[in-house]
Amino acid sequence: MQNDDLSVLRRRYVRYLRLERGYSDNTIEAYTHDIDYLLNYLRNENLKVEDVKLDNLENFAAVIYEFGIASSSQARILCGVRSFFKYLVISGILKDDPSELLEAPTVGEHLPEVLSTEEIDRMEAAIDLSKWEGQRNRAIIEVLFSCGLRVSELVNLKFNDIFEREKFLRIIGKGDKERLVPISDSALHEIQLWLYDRNLMKIKPGEQDYVFLNRRGAHLTRTMILIMIKRTAEEAGITKTVSPHTLRHSFATELLKGGADLRAIQEMLGHENIKTTQIYTHIDITTLRKEILTHHPRNIKENTDKQLI
């Protein structure tokens, strides 16, 4: 079945929910709303439903996470995805269910992973600069960590959004809200190095203004960057669960550790509500607790005494 027929599958699924499952209109609307996330992902990735594997669904789960959807909503969407694939198996469209082992996110307060500056340096050092995309990937990691951008903001970054002399980026965030984000000299330097390679590329019409491009001369997708970040972290020997959002969390955490005001961090991240930003105070307290337990003289003495027993 081709991607053009996904709308037909959707209609058949709605009919199944209504006639076979007997669901109410509100329930059907909720299920199909969640399935639309998946169908749009399949269209963007040019994937046929019969070719979908668990890896594709895990990437889809990562994409909706990167989009900033709440954990409870992610869990609901993935539940709908599993229901949809069960229908595909029952109806004979698929032989096997690729969503069978798809895990839902843990619902509740979640303190995201953060990377230290040393771990970011390790990731950048692990990049093979002899490859054409090497300098591009290095620049992407540096910009994400130095500016705390959402991955959607990075893929849409254009040259007229970079104010090199003033050292600011103009970012259009959620709800088309504009903000100015300072950019470091190191990030600007990595972008400049990438431009030497970029200028040698054949760029597709209409894509000339985008800063970061793929090898076909078109701007990148969220999924492309997610895969690159995960692969680079693995090559750097980092065992944490790392995504583009991890670099954004790390940016905010380093600012807080350095004494930045929470309101300033809120502005930098483009959070509409200060409560969203306050999660970084929990991260910092967690880090502080670890430091105290490791380095406070009372704890050092206690740990030494335990080793002697």
Results as ranks from 00 to 15, higher is better:
residue 229 I to W: 06
residue 172 I to M: 12
residue 248 R to N: 05
residue 11 R to W: 07
residue 202 K to G: 00
residue 163 F to G: 01
residue 283 I to D: 01
residue 307 Q to I: 11
residue 86 K to F: 04
residue 291 E to I: 15
residue 259 G to Q: 08
residue 145 F to K: 02
residue 295 H to W: 02
residue 63 V to Q: 09
residue 103 E to Y: 11
residue 71 S to E: 13
residue 188 L to R: 09
residue 12 R to H: 10
residue 60 F to L: 05
residue 122 R to N: 12
residue 194 W to T: 01
residue 95 K to D: 10
residue 77 I to D: 07
residue 127 I to A: 05
residue 207 E to R: 02
residue 295 H to Q: 05
residue 107 V to T: 14
residue 1 M to G: 11
residue 95 K to C: 04
residue 184 S to F: 08
residue 287 T to K: 14
residue 291 E to S: 12
residue 228 M to K: 14
residue 83 S to C: 07
residue 94 L to C: 06
residue 129 L to Y: 02
residue 222 R to Y: 07
residue 224 M to Q: 14
residue 241 T to F: 08
residue 303 N to R: 13
residue 39 L to H: 08
residue 127 I to M: 03
residue 290 K to G: 14
residue 276 T to G: 10
residue 303 N to Q: 15
residue 145 F to G: 01
residue 150 R to V: 00
residue 142 E to A: 09
residue 129 L to S: 04
residue 211 V to I: 15
residue 301 K to C: 06
residue 214 N to K: 05
residue 101 L to D: 12
residue 155 V to D: 00
residue 249 H to P: 11
residue 299 N to G: 14
residue 179 R to M: 04
residue 294 T to F: 02
residue 145 F to D: 08
residue 30 A to D: 12
residue 239 T to P: 08
residue 30 A to G: 11
residue 118 E to V: 15
residue 96 D to V: 10
residue 287 T to W: 04
residue 37 Y to I: 04
residue 269 L to Q: 09
residue 75 A to Y: 12
residue 193 L to V: 11
residue 190 E to G: 00
residue 306 K to F: 07
